[in-house]
């Protein structure tokens, strides 16, 4: 069985079917892309997998475990890391603390140990610090550890979101438009970076992206959505020549 297995999930908003019977399989080490016009239901799929929305129908399996009935935090703990389309960093925390938050659910020390500053607290704080710094180094932000995220440029904020998700030690990392607002050189750099972390952290990557060169250069498999329905699945070459996809993307293809 695949690492992440999504079977027939759907989501309705009022009468509108945002996602209609979506299936997906993601293998370890694989990079999977989800593309489609705006409003096709891509972010809704992320929200369903990361349990922001409850699963009303269908099943989600992660590494052989059924996570369909998990809460959002259980899904995160079991290995679903994600970023948000409109960056959602904790603005009152500094860069390092933003990453540390991902380690904080681990019961390294209890509340009583914390307020009495017992030995386990000091050890726990050190472990958290080292893990968080490792993630910051992986995305090249260690120099900005004590800055507030609001002071960083847009691209770095996106990287910080990735670092924060990596600190969860995810099995599957889901990135919602990681290349939004980047120029072509930065996109190429992002592709290298993402390939690198996929190997280094031994994870599967699922991305939503509008930049076709990023998707085509990075992904092993692509799902194309339109109005909540999957209209095509396959390798980048296959997708590029699919007549249905061309129809959906008419006028938008050469982006």
């Amino acid at each position: 069985m695949a690492l992440l297995n999504v079977e027939n999930i759907s989501k309705k908003f009022g009468g509108v079917c945002a996602v209609d019977g979506f299936f997906m399989e993601v293998e370890k080490g694989e990079v999977v892309g989800i593309i489609g016009p705006n409003g096709a239901g891509k972010t809704t799929i992320f929200n369903l997998i990361s349990k922001v929305y409850e699963t009303e129908c269908g099943r989600i399996w992660l590494d052989g475990t059924d996570i369909s009935s998990y809460t959002q935090e259980q899904a995160a703990r079991s290995g679903i890391g994600r970023t948000f389309q409109n960056i959602r960093l904790f603005n009152s925390l500094n860069v390092l603390d933003n990453v540390k938050v991902s380690c904080d659910y681990k019961p390294r020390y209890s509340l009583i140990e914390a307020i009495l500053s017992l030995p386990r607290t000091i050890k726990g704080k050190r472990e958290t610090h080292e893990e968080a710094m490792a993630c910051l180094r992986a995305v090249g932000l260690e120099k900005y550890a004590l800055e507030k995220p609001g002071n960083l440029p847009y691209g770095m904020q996106r990287r910080l979101e990735i670092a924060r998700a990596l600190a969860l030690k995810p099995k599957v990392l889901m990135l919602d438009e990681p290349a939004a607002g980047l120029n072509p050189e930065e996109c190429a750099e992002l592709v290298r970076f993402l390939k690198d972390i996929t190997q280094k952290f031994d994870i599967a990557l699922v991305i939503i992206e509008h930049h076709m060169d990023v998707v085509m250069n990075l992904c092993h498999k692509i799902y194309v959505l339109e109005f909540g329905k999957t209209i095509a699945v396959g390798t980048p070459e296959k997708i590029q020549n699919d007549p249905k996809v061309l129809a959906a993307y008419l006028g938008e293809e050469e982006d």
Partner: peptide, 13 residues
């Protein structure tokens, strides 16, 4: 305080 939904996404109950 900053963002409940994001906090949940990073494993915080």
């Amino acid at each position: 305080k900053a963002d409940e939904l994001a906090a949940k996404s990073f494993g915080i109950n």
